[in-house]
């Protein structure tokens, strides 16, 4: 059912855990299945210096979380925001049809974190 890459990321996810005193946190729940992903960001000079995730979800959701963190790490915010679901699915060697929706979890949790980061920054400016 799952590709080798999905299984590998699921078994040994990258960047799993939390960041203490993060610069931003984002969280999103999947309305279809009730699964949840949270990301923690360390941002410096508009670059994702560090990212960690926590996910309650299926094997696909955890693999997606792992790949997302790989894809955005060390990128500028602008570049990182370009990462999309298709890229994640490609990186995972594909996902079973009924699991494609799980890929949304990663990008959306990340976008939520960036959103929170920018809101926070604007608030500090004012």
């Amino acid at each position: 059912m799952y590709s080798k890459k999905v299984i590998n990321h699921f078994k040994n996810p990258h960047n799993q855990g939390i960041i203490k005193n993060p610069d931003a946190v984002g969280q999103v729940g999947n309305p279809v299945c009730g699964d949840v992903m949270r990301v923690y960001l360390r941002i410096k000079d508009d670059i994702i210096k560090n990212i960690k995730f926590e996910t309650l979800g299926c094997a696909a959701a955890i693999a997606v979380s792992s790949v997302l963190t790989d894809l955005v790490k060390n990128k500028t915010l602008t570049e990182a925001l370009k990462v999309n679901n298709n890229e994640i699915i490609k990186e995972l060697g594909g996902l079973p049809a009924q699991k494609v929706h799980c890929s949304a979890l990663g990008v959306e949790a990340f976008k939520d974190a960036i959103n929170n980061y920018q809101k926070n920054k604007n608030a500090q400016k004012n």
Binding site: Y2, I7, F10, D35, L56, G57, C58, A59, A61
Partner: peptide, 12 residues
């Protein structure tokens, strides 16, 4: 935990 994730780890 999600049941499916348990299932896959048990299967492995």
């Amino acid at each position: 935990v999600e049941g499916e994730a348990i299932l896959i780890l048990l299967d492995l």
